[in-house]
Amino acid sequence: MKTSIARKVLMALSGFFLLFFLLQHFVINFSSVFGDGDGFNSASHFMGTNSIIQFGLQPVLIFGVIFHLAMGIYLELQNNKARSVKYAMNKPGANSSWMSRNMIYTGLMVMLFLGLHFYDFWIPEIKTKFIVGDMTGLMADGETLRYFHELQLKFQDPIRVALYCVSFIFLSLHLLHGFQSAFQSVGFNHNRYTPIIKKLGNLYAVLVPLGFIFIAVYHYLNPPH
């Protein structure tokens, strides 16, 4: 934690963890566009009630997000201090990508989105499960699982759908730099594998956010009957 490289490596490790989390989140969400949402329901119920996931992995995730955010802000402040007098004329575009220079801003936009996302889904879940004490995951009718139904309802609001779509664009920009950057940070750069990692990173950074956008728009266009 004491040196620049140690902090950089921790930034990358939290990034890797978030990348892994995001992928599994995507796979589960994607199941909601197939069938009547049964697959999505059972996956959601499992993730929401399995105690290893709830009490083992969820705290790690929350810590990971907060750590990544706090470290990102700390590094940005330090980096600003390292050049106290700015250039009168500067052409950063001549030597680096927009994404790489604006990680803190794309990251903060993702954080704002996470606020909305928690308000939408996480807080109501926690309330039902731990405050009301209803661990069944069932709707008021006591028969069907509520997850898919709630998802459908939430995505009837066009403003919410639009906010989700815009946020995923920021996420995409963040990952277009972040994915390959994390490998470099942990010290992996090899002339045979790095070009593949960069391609894979671009693929991930475009396809996963695009997939999330597709899911949001799909449910907007297919209201519950």
């Binding site: 950089k8 201090k81 001549a94 030597n95 992996f188």
Partner: peptide, 28 residues
């Protein structure tokens, strides 16, 4: 000095073409 964020600007502007690979090697 500030912290590296892998923007790659250094490699582009370096008059000797020093590669970013060296940074990864140092991190490692």
């Amino acid at each position: 000095f500030g912290n590296c964020t892998n923007t790659g600007a250094c490699e582009v502007e370096c008059p000797k073409g020093i590669s970013l690979e060296n940074i990864a090697r140092m991190n490692n």
